[in-house]
Computed example of a mutant assay.
Amino acid sequence: MSTLVWPPIAIESVQREEEDSIALELEWLLTSLQETLRSLKAGLEDCAELLAPKEPGSTLVLSSLRSENLKGFITRVGTRIVKGDVQLRLPSLPPPKGAMSYKLSISTLPTAPTIALPQLTTTRTLINACLDVVDATRWTGDASNADFISGQLRLLHENIQEAKSALKGWTQDQKAWYEEPVDAKAFNPPLPSNVSFHLSVSEAAVLLNVRTLGPANAETGTNTPLSFTGGTAPPAGQSYSGFSLRERLATALGGQRQVFHDEAHEVFMYNGQEVRVRDKVRVESQDPSLMSTMAKLGALERSVALSRRALGVVMGRSDEEET
């Protein structure tokens, strides 16, 4: 059988019919994208609700694996940590007399500084920006303008990707533990100056790193050990240098204290002083609200990506032009 059309159709007529067909398909797609935008807004509102500062918040259990180095809990309300108790058993942080462990308590006083999770603040800001983009696309722009809708979808896609990355952790804007120390007065009693308490978000879980610090150069040339300045006094029975009596005796007899963490041989600038990390304990606690938020953002990201790809095909754009 022959597939030729007789009489043959003029090339100009074929092109005109193709253009009319593409225009109709583009019109249909732009109309259907309005429903997609409504669904996206509902999903983004769910994410915003999961991160909203609602009482009583999320209480997360903290427990170090296969050791008693760290036990406790923290309570998160929105982007802030409002309550928490942590019990530490670290060689370089001897407990007060009569106690089995060293206790860190987050202050609940109204005047105490706030412990916030900047990654959650970033995520909330980006989700709110996404909601603004959706509203602007639906109500203030030209819904029949393919270039406008394409640009708005691209902006929406980028914001969702950044929000998801903030929950995954370790983005370019995230500061290291020694660059932005927590305020000592956020604890009651205040955090010792030789202890670093650092909270972050990693893979939608709250990650706590507690480090005990010592001077980078413990030899001062005098009989007085190098001490931290600008912080609170160490607890009774604890050396200003961060070394316990047992460890100083062992060092004097030629022994060397073993270290078992990845930062043992690095020097950091912390609160204006060069320090080394003596002990380090890392605890990760899964947060159901953050896990749900990241899963929803992943689904929204895929939905927007599909919409962008479909619109790009109808508009005759390549994948490179859409990225």
Rank of each mutant, 00 (worst) to 15 (best):
T3V: 07
P7F: 10
P8N: 14
I9M: 15
I11T: 11
V14M: 13
I22L: 15
E25H: 10
E25K: 15
W28F: 10
L30H: 02
S32C: 13
Q34E: 01
G43L: 03
C47D: 02
E49D: 14
L51E: 00
P53Y: 00
S58R: 13
L60Y: 07
L62T: 00
L62Y: 10
L65G: 00
N69K: 03
T79Q: 10
T79P: 02
I81P: 04
K83W: 04
D85K: 14
R89Q: 14
L90W: 07
P95Q: 05
P96Q: 08
M100W: 09
Y102G: 04
S105D: 04
L109M: 09
P110E: 02
L117M: 11
Q119E: 07
T121M: 09
T121F: 03
T122S: 13
T125F: 03
L126C: 02
I127R: 00
N128S: 14
A129H: 06
D135F: 09
T140R: 14
T140C: 10
G141H: 10
G141K: 15
D142V: 12
N145K: 15
I149F: 02
S150H: 15
G151H: 06
L153V: 11
R154S: 13
L156W: 05
H157Q: 11
I160S: 04
K164A: 11
A166P: 06
A166W: 00
T171W: 00
Y178A: 02
V182C: 15
K185S: 09
A186K: 03
P192T: 08
S193W: 06
F197I: 09
H198W: 13
V210P: 05
T212K: 05
N223R: 03
P225V: 04
S227F: 02
S227T: 12
T229W: 02
G230S: 05
P234F: 03
Y240P: 09
S241F: 01
R248Y: 03
R248I: 08
L249D: 01
T251E: 13
A252M: 14
Q256H: 15
F260W: 15
E263Q: 07
H265C: 06
M269Y: 05
R276S: 04
D279A: 12
E284A: 15
S285T: 04
S289N: 12
L290D: 01
S292Y: 00
M294C: 09
K296M: 07
G298A: 11
L300H: 06
S303W: 11
V304A: 08
L306H: 01
G312S: 09
E321P: 01
